[in-house]
């Protein structure tokens, strides 16, 4: 596991989320600050897929850091979560 640079995290997350949106028939543009869950573009099922992806790719344990969906609600928020020291694995 390595600490990924923010642009790379953003790029990977944007790709991942865009793919999920396309699967759902949503091909609208996606910016880094667009709301994903509170806007209804993604649902709870997408949230769990995203959680599992972040856990696997970045070694984050959501039960340790306290789960809060708003921290996954945009690409920027996810990048911030992945980059913050408390979220990084020891």
């Amino acid at each position: 596991m390595t600490t990924t640079e923010r642009p790379e995290v953003r790029s990977r997350m944007r790709h991942y989320i865009t793919q999920r949106l396309i699967m759902k028939g949503d091909s609208s543009p996606l910016s880094d600050d667009d709301l994903l869950f509170t806007s209804g573009r993604l649902d709870s099922l997408d949230a769990v897929e995203l959680i599992m992806s972040i856990e696997t790719d970045y070694g984050i344990n959501f039960s340790d850091i306290g789960f809060d969906l708003t921290r996954l609600d945009s690409i920027s928020a996810i990048a911030g979560l992945v980059q913050q020291p408390s979220a990084e694995p020891a």
Partner: peptide, 8 residues
């Protein structure tokens, strides 16, 4: 796209 669209 914004909240009103209810994109579920």
């Amino acid at each position: 796209m914004s909240a009103e669209s209810q994109l579920y």
